[in-house]
Design a protein around this nucleic acid. Sequence first.
DNA 1: CTGAAAGCGCTTACAG
DNA 2: CTGAAAGCGCTTACAG
Lengths: 355, 355
Amino acid sequence: MKPPSQIKAPLSGGGTTTSTINDVARLAGVSIKTVSRVINKEPNVREETRQKVQEAATLLHYRPNLLARSLAGSRSFLIGLFYDNPVPHYIDAMQRGVIRRAREDNHHLLIEPQDSHSPDLERSISSLLATVRLDGVILTPPLCDMAVVLHAIETAGVPYVRVSPFLNPGRSPSVRIDDVTAAYEMTLHLIAQGHRDIGFILGHPEHGASHLRYEGFVKALRENNLEPRAEWVKQGFFSYESGIDAARSLFAAGAPRPTAIFSSNDYMAFGLMAYAQQIGVRIPEDISVVGFDDVPGAILVWPHVTTIRQPVEEMAYAATDLLLNRATEDENGKPIETTRSLPFGLIVRESARQV
Amino acid sequence: MKPPSQIKAPLSGGGTTTSTINDVARLAGVSIKTVSRVINKEPNVREETRQKVQEAATLLHYRPNLLARSLAGSRSFLIGLFYDNPVPHYIDAMQRGVIRRAREDNHHLLIEPQDSHSPDLERSISSLLATVRLDGVILTPPLCDMAVVLHAIETAGVPYVRVSPFLNPGRSPSVRIDDVTAAYEMTLHLIAQGHRDIGFILGHPEHGASHLRYEGFVKALRENNLEPRAEWVKQGFFSYESGIDAARSLFAAGAPRPTAIFSSNDYMAFGLMAYAQQIGVRIPEDISVVGFDDVPGAILVWPHVTTIRQPVEEMAYAATDLLLNRATEDENGKPIETTRSLPFGLIVRESARQV
DNA sequence: CTGAAAGCGCTTACAG
DNA sequence: CTGAAAGCGCTTACAG
């Protein structure tokens, strides 16, 4: 025999009994189905009934239990953010953007950092998706370009949106900036400053943006009858340390030096600048340096770094918007090609100047 | 009539039917209760039965549905991280630590950034906790020192652990470093370098650490027969900009200057250093500067900043450990005073030197 | 050592 | 416009 559950007072000593849909129904004198209708703003409820239910719900501080809704219904109100990115600033902005949009629809965010090099990656994602039903997943590089990741998510039948994907652009909805054009404009900026001998530090090869940025660089060069010189194009991995390494080989004794260096991201530019300072190469007097991303450190180092601003938080917001609007599937439930390209910004500071 | 659910193949076109406890029970020829026992590693199952169930589960790729477990049982496998902190590096480290420990027990992390200045804070937390049942909550400054926040969580009866709390230390289990001693040792370090005239930039007054760090500073001074000088103690707010403001008033024309400045965190030290550079004050030649936290930027600026390293990720791990071990309640369900204090590190770099 | 029943708090499909 | 029944996939008490 279940004791009638009435209006609850907080139990002294912690622990409250929360009221349920049954409590509201009883107090309002309707069925739980009607309460459900009111809570979910379904049509076909008499205004008077609606008010009665509303009042009862307010009085009891009723909040629908997410877990129960998920189990019974088709939505979980949970969004998953999968990433493997060592840059806190990027992750932070992503999370803010996703949460801002998710909250508009009463969704919550589960963060699921993954090790993109784990041999178990696919199994761990499949297992995760079987364990906790998610309404959708947001994927950032490099995960968004990994076949096993996409396969696991598609197999589970969970909608997903990718941020800055490189491979299979039409495979899912996505959000990006135009990395090619951004790098193109940055290169044009250097050329406009009189630079002809421009070096380039490539990004991590597993990140699609690395290739796109280099593509934009080369495009701008060629349009100006210039060619990238192999000895001035160095492989980096997006890290501070790899920027130092690139600088070391770029500034090798005796070798001819470019007058400007375009680093595929800011951290490598920082490493490069630190190394330059150590060996007495002045920036921007001796060499101009530009980066990409506009991380917070860009105005911490001296000189402040000329760079490209990527609206990461807005990209995350847009990705979540695509997910929640379900503007992602056609009538057959197949993902439709939806790509939102957001504006970037060329931020001119002091690390590059007229040659 | 429900069609018998058998071994499932991925539906072409996306969407798999996942197998349930019923499928496993049927295949193994046992009741669902027995499957439940095996999955939850409960005792009293014949080894032979256990194996049969295990095999069936493996064959069907069975993963217990988290939502169903939560609804039926007393655990949700969800941990909430509440914060309102603008420093990405800190949040990132917190999240990593929590997730690392949470995964050991198959828990997931829901992140719930809050606006600590919102008038709705208490209601929004209460509502959140009523909506999604959490197994526990981790609280960081400044939220961990807000009465309304603690009240909302306690009323909901959800266990919580605080990181670096200042107020009511015994009110809940917590994890911290000894900010007083850290600041004390840093000050001693400066004194050992011959500094007697030491300025101090206070942290944000809403963060408990601000007061503790100042306390350690004063303690070290007094033990050496020194006194803080009011005109050299400036209010800051943990931000880069507030460091600039502090520097501006500290370096006001004509005023006597300290030989060293202890900034309550690194960002303010960065602001201070940038301002110093602008007005031609050399660091560390003219003035030594030290910070606190060891954020990534500390080795980006020049000179690299002498600072205190806080093991944020380990603190988060420890906090989650306290939560999951339930070493947090006594036999009456009241929280027991458990505080773990983790070691900090004095990181000596180039921004401070012998006077 | 094992299982049948009830129930967690909702939504879904139906019936009226 | 409203409701009674069934069921989501588990766990909790109980019974044997």
